[in-house]
Write a protein that binds this DNA or RNA. Structure first.
Length: 584
RNA sequence: GGAUCUGUAGCUCAAUUGGAUAGAGCACUUGGCUUCGAACCAAGGGGUCGGGGGUUCGAGUCCCUCCAGAUCCGCCA
């Protein structure tokens, strides 16, 4: 009998069964299986400690009782008890070989992983830029983390709906329209439309600060737009089209796609229902002329209002976000909703979710799960957040171009024999990959100071290191005249035996656990760390154990390890949104 | 003033959310290419986990309290 894809959950099941056999079925024993430090084993279960503590038993004796009932596992594992009651599991080499032989393609890895979120629909809201503004480095986190999360969830069996919630209805549009009508430079508009729109916004903003009459004029333009004035509506459409084209180009470069792009304006006609229902259920109340929600049970939000309609009767982003929650729950039938924004909006989304829970409960709607996937800001050298309207934000376009240039210089230095077109292609994968990997590899909750040095680093835990390991594997197979995916290469493989082989095999088997962890917390850096360690194990193995040796059995098992390392590395990088290479 | 997040090696970051001896990269020192790609590998030095107290078999992780930085707190998104 072969092991399932997810060895940790296999052990979890066995441990629960053992607890049941002890008559503890309903006592809340949690096995707490996790990947172990290699010094102790491949997996460990720590749950006996917490359980014994709660039940006032000797933890080590309790753990021993569990182990005594795990006889079925001894075919595949060496079991041992350590310290105060850790249960350690080490896979036998035969079990490692069997697992490796079973999961022999990206496809099979996926079918193994797909049980995790089978039948669940996730709506993921990410990127969500504001119309008429250029994307700068601050926008990259939401895009690359969002894309990675979508791919990870889909890989693990979820049905993913990707929605780009574009900011296309802000109050800034009055100023922009006023600027367009009064300050427009047609030549500049033809040359770089988005650049010109951004200039117009800034100029109009400055003008309305100087002159109250200009501010009034801008407000009047907004009112006209909201009342459906044909000229302003046409202008608004045109601005959106220009923006969308620029955004699409960035998305193309980064390999990001959406199923829907329902901006804030889409929810205009759905706001009245929100106001009515929240008022009827007495969740919302009038305060200082505005419609607001307080949460008396909450220490902060009992006094800090959630303003869902402004005192002038206009909507704000709380209004549209509420309407959006409803639409996603009802129209998309979401089981879970994940919204990616920076951490500064944490209060807003906490209030949104508190309000939504009360609203859906009182109106007897099914409540989806909700996750505000927040991330830290990218700071400038001064330690302040990089902002569009202050200082000198670095354009995303420029960043990506610079990344490719630097990567091209490096490829040319390392592999001058390759034709230029291929070096350009490699530079694209390496450069763009390095930029997005730099963001993904870091725990999303912390801020970081932007530096070219860091984001374009090609050493250590970076995309080029992982891509390099992949190209070395492809190179081995080129040498023996096979493709890296040819199953014939691994025919007759024997069980892994050397330290390098065993460590690599064990690392491969823990892939499933990493997918669990990464999707449970929606933190791609766990996967990055794993892939980096896997590539490191491979490099160690590669230096210590020659693959192309005469002994056919040794050669086959090393080729098997190469193939499995390759598919996991490639699958992993593809999940992170990176393109992989055969040469570099 | 209230609240949230952050503080780990000289620098940039991890630590599976309470588990076993806190780990990587860069930088520094040393060794390894006539041998499957050296964008690599092996080894070494470098830590009061911001300070102090507490909770328990066990704390970088939880609680309290200071210190420092970032962010949010009524009509921007």
């Amino acid at each position: 009998m072969s092991l399932p894809f997810n060895v940790a959950s296999h052990l979890d099941t066995a441990l629960r069964a053992a607890a049941s056999a002890l008559g503890l079925a309903d006592r809340g024993f949690e096995p707490e299986v996790r990947v172990a430090d290699p010094a102790h084993g491949d997996f460990q279960a720590n749950g006996a400690l917490a359980f014994a503590k709660r039940e006032k038993q000797n933890p080590r004796a309790f753990a021993q009782q569990i182990v005594d009932r795990l006889g079925d596992l001894t075919a595949d594992f060496d079991l041992s008890l350590a310290g105060p009651g850790f249960i350690n599991f080490r896979l036998k080499p035969t079990a490692l070989l069997a697992w490796l032989q079973t999961y022999d393609s990206e496809q099979h890895l996926q079918s193994g992983a797909a049980t995790l979120y089978q039948g669940q629909r996730f709506v993921v809201d990410f990127s969500s830029p504001n119309t008429a503004k250029q994307m700068h480095v601050g926008h990259i986190r939401g895009m690359v983390i969002g894309e990675a999360i979508c791919r990870l969830l889909a890989f693990c069996g979820a049905e993913v709906v990707r929605d780009n919630h574009i900011g296309d209805w802000g109050t800034g549009f009055g100023k922009l329209i006023w600027g367009y009508k009064n300050l427009r430079n047609d030549q500049a508009l033809a040359r770089d439309p988005l650049e010109e729109l951004e200039r117009l916004y800034k100029a109009a903003d400055a003008a309305s600060k100087e002159n109250p009459a200009t501010l009034d004029a801008a407000r009047a333009e907004l009112v006209k737009l909201q009342n459906g004035d044909p000229e302003n509506t046409a202008l608004w459409n045109q601005i959106n089209t220009i923006s969308a084209a620029a955004f699409t180009e960035i998305y193309r470069q980064l390999g990001i796609r959406f199923d829907h792009q329902l901006g804030e304006s889409f929810y205009n006609d759905k706001l009245a229902q929100v106001y009515e229902e929240l008022r009827a259920t007495q969740i919302a109340e009038d305060s200082q002329g505005a419609l607001v929600v307080f949460h008396p049970e909450h220490a902060r939000f009992k006094t800090q209002p959630f303003i869902i309609r402004k005192s002038d009767g206009a909507s704000n982003y709380a209004s549209t976000d509420l309407a959006t929650m409803l639409y996603r729950a009802e129209h998309f039938k979401a089981d879970a909703i994940a919204i990616l924004t920076d951490a500064r909006q944490a209060d807003h989304f906490e209030q949104l979710w508190l309000t939504t829970q009360k609203w859906f409960t009182q109106t007897k709607r099914r409540l989806p799960r909700f996750e505000h996937v927040s991330f830290g800001a990218i700071l400038g050298e001064d330690g302040k957040a990089i902002k569009t309207r202050t200082g000198d934000p670095i354009r995303l376009k420029a960043l990506l171009a610079e990344a490719e240039e630097r990567a091209f210089a490096l490829v040319t230095e390392k592999s001058p024999e390759l034709p230029e077109t291929e070096r350009r292609d490699i530079a694209n994968a390496v450069g763009i990959g390095a930029v997005r990997y730099a963001d993904l590899a870091q725990n999303r909750s912390s801020d970081y100071v932007f530096s070219w040095e860091k984001i374009l680093s090609f050493e250590g835990n970076t995309a080029p290191y992982l891509l390099y390991a992949i190209t070395r594997i492809h190179s081995i197979f080129r040498k023996i005249g096979l493709t890296a995916y040819d199953s014939a290469a691994a025919q007759g493989a024997t069980t892994p035996a050397t330290d390098g082989e065993l460590a690599l095999a064990r690392k491969l088997v823990s892939f499933a656990s990493v997918l669990n962890l990464t999707t449970a917390q929606l933190r791609p850096h766990y996967l990055c760390t794993y892939l980096y360690e896997l590539a490191g194990q491979f490099s160690t193995f590669y230096a210590a154990d020659k693959v192309i040796v005469d002994d056919p059995a040794v050669r086959a098992r090393r080729l098997l390890l190469c193939q499995r390392t390759l598919i996991v590395l490639e699958a992993g990088l593809h999940l992170l949104g990176l393109r992989t290479l055969e040469r570099m």
